[in-house]
């Protein structure tokens, strides 16, 4: 327990899916007047999922589309709260799923570093003290005072990556194989992640692609239909998963 980074106890995430879409008050009122109740069904995107991950481990999560990977990540990164069960995290988490969340395309790169940094929970002073380092890593210092609507998509992603990974997080969540920017930047970003991993960050890699998982992790959790199908060494899981 002492060195647990992530722990899930019987986590269930339930989405309520209405059979007919009733997003307006008007339709709701009509339905109510007609004494027709609103029918819906429940769908458990995650069903009693429990596992724990030790500090410093690199764990893969594999599963087909719709297996609940994204929901699992959302629950871990606090975007949604579990319907039942408990999610416990120790340390600061950096989800590299949504690079550049909160970017405002009318504003300059510099302004967006502050904005994105604040979305990630850093205060202004802190970001100001690290600004130069972030700009340098992103490699777009020439354009840092231009609005980011003039950036290429690669440049925007690089800026987002630079902000999100500037401070070593305790838990790093990576989606698929990280492909940010050009070959050179990809190398640079992979190196940074490796360095954080060596320095003790817990790393969670999510993918439906076995080869991506194989490259990075030894320990793999296999999700299927919102349940943990299996957990074990990468070779075992991938053998079963691929067949």
């Amino acid at each position: 327990m002492e060195n647990t980074a992530i722990q899930l106890n019987d986590v269930t995430v339930r989405f309520r899916i209405p059979h007919e879409k009733i997003p307006t008050l008007q339709e709701y009122a009509i339905r109510w007047l007609k004494r027709r109740s609103v029918s819906f069904s429940d769908f458990n995107a995650l069903n009693n999922v429990s596992f724990s991950i030790k500090q410093g481990a690199t764990v893969g999560i594999i599963g087909a589309n719709g297996a609940g990977k994204s929901t699992l990540l959302k629950v871990i990164s606090r975007v949604i709260r579990p319907t039942y069960g408990r999610v416990f995290l120790r340390g600061r988490i950096a989800p590299l799923l949504e690079l550049g969340a909160g970017f405002d395309y009318e504003m300059t790169g510099r302004e967006n570093i502050f904005l994105n940094g604040a979305v990630l929970g850093f205060n202004r002073k802190d970001i100001a003290s690290r600004l130069d380092r972030i700009v340098e890593f992103s490699g777009i210092s020439e354009f840092i005072d231009a609005p980011i609507r003039t950036y290429s998509s690669g440049m925007v992603a690089r800026l987002g990556f630079a902000v999100a990974t500037d401070v070593q997080p305790d838990i790093l969540v990576i989606d698929e194989i990280l492909s940010v920017g050009d070959v050179e930047f990809q190398k640079k970003s992979a190196q940074r992640i490796l360095q954080y991993s060596n320095n003790g960050s817990t790393i969670l890699v999510v993918s439906h692609n076995p080869s991506a998982i194989k490259q990075l992790c030894n320990d793999v959790i296999w999700l299927q239909h919102g349940l943990i199908k299996m957990r074990g060494s990468v070779d075992d899981i991938i053998n079963y998963y691929s067949s």
Binding site: R78, R81, R86, V87, F88, L89, R90, G91, R92, D170
Partner: peptide
């Protein structure tokens, strides 16, 4: 260290 516990 920062902690998040959805139950607490």
């Amino acid at each position: 260290m920062l902690e998040y516990d959805s139950a607490k």
